[in-house]
Design a protein around this nucleic acid. Sequence first.
DNA 1: CCCTGAACCTGACCGC
DNA 2: TGCGGTCAGGTTCAGG
Length: 270
Amino acid sequence: MPELPEVETTRRGILPHIVEQRVKTLEVRQAKLRWPVPDSIHQVAGKKLLDVERRGKYLLFRFRNGTVIAHLGMSGSMRITAPDEPPGFHDHVDMVFSDGRRLRYCDPRRFGAWLWTEEEPTDHPLIASLGPEPLTEAFHATYLHGKSRGRKSSIKAFIMDSHIVVGVGNIYANEALFMAGIHPKRAAGKVSAARYEKLVQAIKQVLADAINMGGTTLRDFVGGDGKPGYFQQTLRVYGRANRPCRNCQTPLKEIRLGQRSTVFCKLCQT
DNA sequence: CCCTGAACCTGACCGC
DNA sequence: TGCGGTCAGGTTCAGG
């Protein structure tokens, strides 16, 4: 259920339980994920987990001589389980630590991934071509405006392209465009520098707020149900088709853009 | 290089 | 109750 805030929430939730712990084994009950889980991944056995990092929506489990690159896809989640808790039908992978605790990966749709690389993850093909992190200073209006020149695709598809900027999924693309007052179908190349300024601020704010909210649901994350945090926050447009715009009361419109549900206010967004 | 649509999968929900 | 269609938080890949 991951947008970037969920992935970051997951990272923060699992990290303190497993960092510095030694991996006993990796149990793969279902290897058919986005890509087949490679046999080489079993090299983690016996290694100490040094850190869990995040790049975009990828989670990077760092070991001395390699990295597990994991992705939650559309429906993936991770939690820490007790040694004796039996896996459910969609619990495809366990990273088992020497103290018996397990990092358990559940992913009904299997769009996620578990990969192993011995190169620096920044050099891995999936990671190397990614755009900047939205919550860093590397992501700013000048950058986005520059990248957009000459682009005819919609602004929504543009900001959801991980090669432009990582971590802006469908929900937050809708939200950020509403906050910035930009019509989702507008050509990316025709958005002014001033509006990119607003858009960048909106993206940063909506993601940062969601991470903070995720943090509140995170408190019982380990033992809890792993319910996504963003349904508990007040979304401005996503999931609110035909309901009144929070600015002007006009019923929000829903269209399909790149096979994705797109909700906006036809008066407030131009 | 840029853009669009298909593909990967399961489960929930809706209307008949 | 069952069946078919639609939709869901992502991302790569093929093809124009």
